[in-house]
Design a protein around this nucleic acid. Sequence first.
DNA 1: ATAGGGTTAG
Length: 622
Amino acid sequence: MAPILCTPTSQLSSESNAAQTLHLLQRCSNMEELRQIHGQMLKTGLILDEIPASKLLAFCASPNSGSLAYARTVFDRIFRPNTFMWNTMIRGYSNSKEPEEALLLYHHMLYHSVPHNAYTFPFLLKACSSMSALEETQQIHAHIIKMGFGSEIYTTNSLLNVYSKSGDIKSARLLFDQVDQRDTVSWNSMIDGYTKCGEIEMAYEIFNHMPERNIISWTSMISGCVGAGKPKEALNLFHRMQTAGIKLDNVALVSTLQACADLGVLDQGKWIHAYIKKHEIEIDPILGCVLIDMYAKCGDLEEAIEVFRKMEEKGVSVWTAMISGYAIHGRGREALEWFMKMQTAGVEPNQMTFTGILTACSHAGLVHEAKLLFESMERIHGFKPSIEHYGCMVDLLGRAGLLKEAEELIENMPVKPNAAIWGALLNACHIHGNLELGKQIGKILIQVDPGHGGRYIHLASIHAAAGEWNQAARVRRQMKEQGVSKLPGCSVISVNGTAHEFLAGDESHPQIKEIDHMLEQIVERLREEGYKPKLGDLLLDLEDKEKETAIHHHSEKLAVTFGLISTKPGMTIRIVKNLRVCEDCHTVIKLISKVYAREILMRDRTRFHLFKDGNCTCGDYW
DNA sequence: ATAGGGTTAG
């Protein structure tokens, strides 16, 4: 028989067919196209070929445009999938809402004795990490050692990462010290682990000792500081990072903007926004969210709206950031309008949106509206109100003077009240002078939250307001015995880009003489307007004259006074205070806004106060 | 293939 000299036409065509299909798979951009290719592959039998089938699976299981469910149906029909295919499915589930499926697949994989390769464990451990599944991680760790992957750096790094993320920093450290190979990823995971469990000093130690730092090292430290309530250190690190010549990316900017928001430093926040524009960095949904939040928290709602307008993808978080922005400014009506606009735009509110809108109602005294919204949460939107939402309602009712209703709500709510709930009620007692109830709640709070200095101060000042000096002193003693200290009041004012910080009774400012002199003048001037210092609930057991001196040196008064002498007439004075503004300071600043014809914008612990013509936007309830 | 980011009551 004559030998076949050339490849049969049919085979040629099927080969070029396979090449073409592979090419199509490579360029495939959505599931619609993929379905067609899949159909083609079923017809030609190419689905039986490992490489095209793998490519098909990989596309469906990819997190962006794929469909994991589709991938699963394909996978389940493959006879003896290879390791790559198993890995692909495990990876798909590890990035999905059902990471536990990744573990189940792994069990099947073991059952079918499919061999592992170096890619299997990183994917699998990622699934563990998103579930914080410590026990499973320990079991997998044992497999890793048994199967000889214990020196694979991707695998050990993944282990480090799960232990860190799941809060088992001890195991992470043990492994970190054990392994014979470490890279930047290993060090970075340790930084993240230490910051996540609040050990910021240890994170610094790792950071300082690592041989090489990349942008992730820096960003982990910055976000760690933000999370630990050290936004100043975060900004400090940011500047060091720039000196080190690191190119910024979105994640680094997000963390830094949060620090700006926490500190209320508008200038620095603006600088970053300008940087984003200059370098044409894309404002993704998360970056947009924190930009809006930063502007809102730095007092510039107009600019927040601008950012919102320019964003292309307006998801629920972005709307929520806007609504929460209006909330802290006490602009409840507008918050409600935005809430409506959002739904008209077809965006469904989530739990956080409700926290935002209820807060907005609370700060603006919109009791009726809040009740309707609260009731609609479950009835219309299908959310069970969480403890945060109950907190908003207690705050709202209490602020509005409906103490009885607030108490009833606490009694009838399905969850156990926490410190925040009692705190809201105590605050209401304070505002409305319900000293008896206040004392009861104060006692509960000290038990629930014994390490929180503010609680003792609050209770002591209620006793003081009732003229019970002995009781007030007793509470303060108790606080001392517990080793709890009071967070000192601190107000910051930015003048020409420099932040000036004042503590209560602070003498350290270089212009303190001038400030003191001006302050005396102000008090004189305000007395003519009928101002009397309110000393009633001041804690200190002092003579009235001494009390006056103390109260006049509260940080917010020092900062406002400095603002008056160091900025041009007519300019808005912007101040950020770390605690709730004191009642006497609130009165004084209102009067200053009238007598000195200045707008004063002050952010305290919970909200903004805009003082203007002798009034404040908080309506005196804060 | 492994590491860093969101709005949140008091």
